[in-house]
């Protein structure tokens, strides 16, 4: 399947204009920054704060906005109209995802600065955040594709929030049961491990979380592309 950057850019610009005029959704942009100010006043070294900030932002900004953008296009039949233009599935998905990617990266960078967060390995954190944003965009796309309206899309993010943000706090809530060890393989826990990397870390401490997050990202990205093509076919 071919990709036209010109067409993807046209969809990006269109989404930016729509997003900037849709205050109900664009308000999500301040979520990470609000949390950052909240935690900053509680103390920058608050345990688990940075992990919680990133994970909740990825759900309430990245996943929610992507789900709403897709659901709104479906609700208004514009996604089908786009499909009938020369734009390919990848042109549409890349164009739509690029806006959410840029907004998420920007908001998380500002939130990190506000909190005074300094990672032990900048490149590892950047790589993990980039992969996580792509993962949550894919999850948002799936939520949007299964929603008929904007309201449904907002609600569909709740289960995603439970699945993707709860694992880091599960042992605190339910105790340290062996079965909960499986949650160590969730992307949110792996992201927290990278964000809270201690000084003097080993290469393996970075590689394992990055590989696990990459695997989640690849799987969900493929699922979102396949579902996009299937959900928009009338069979």
């Amino acid at each position: 399947m071919s990709i036209s950057l010109r067409r993807a850019r046209a969809i990006f610009v269109k989404d930016y204009k729509e997003f900037s005029r849709n205050y109900a959704i664009s308000i999500s942009l301040i979520v990470p920054i609000l949390f950052a100010f909240l935690f900053r006043s509680a103390g920058p070294s608050l345990p688990g704060a940075i992990g919680f900030l990133f994970n909740i932002s990825l759900v309430l900004l990245t996943c929610l906005v992507q789900a709403c953008l897709i659901a709104e296009e479906k609700e208004r039949n514009t996604l089908r109209t786009l499909m009938m233009t020369p734009a390919t599935t990848l042109d549409v998905l890349i164009g739509k995802s690029a806006l959410v990617f840029v907004l998420s990266a920007l908001a998380l960078a500002i939130a990190s600065y506000v909190m005074g967060y300094e990672p032990a390995s900048l490149w590892a954190v950047v790589a993990a955040v980039v992969l996580s944003i792509i993962l949550y965009i894919a999850v948002g796309t799936i939520c949007g594709l299964f929603s008929k309206t904007l309201l449904e899309a907002s609600l569909s993010v709740i289960p995603a929030a439970m699945v993707f943000t709860a694992p880091p706090v599960a042992p605190l809530l339910f105790g340290d049961y062996p079965i909960l060890k499986v949650l160590d393989y969730t992307p949110s826990i792996q992201l927290v491990q990278l964000l809270e990397l201690p000084p003097g870390f080993m290469t393996g401490d970075i590689l394992k979380p990055l590989l696990i997050i990459s695997a989640w990202t690849v799987v969900f990205s493929i699922i979102s592309v396949v579902l996009y093509q299937r959900r928009l076919k009338d069979e």
Partner: peptide, 20 residues
């Protein structure tokens, strides 16, 4: 089943199609 982008102007809608 055709749709339009409600928050955009007529010209902005057509600009998208022009570029596509």
């Amino acid at each position: 089943n055709s749709g339009l982008y409600e928050r955009l102007t007529i010209e902005e809608n057509l600009e998208l199609f022009r570029q596509l």
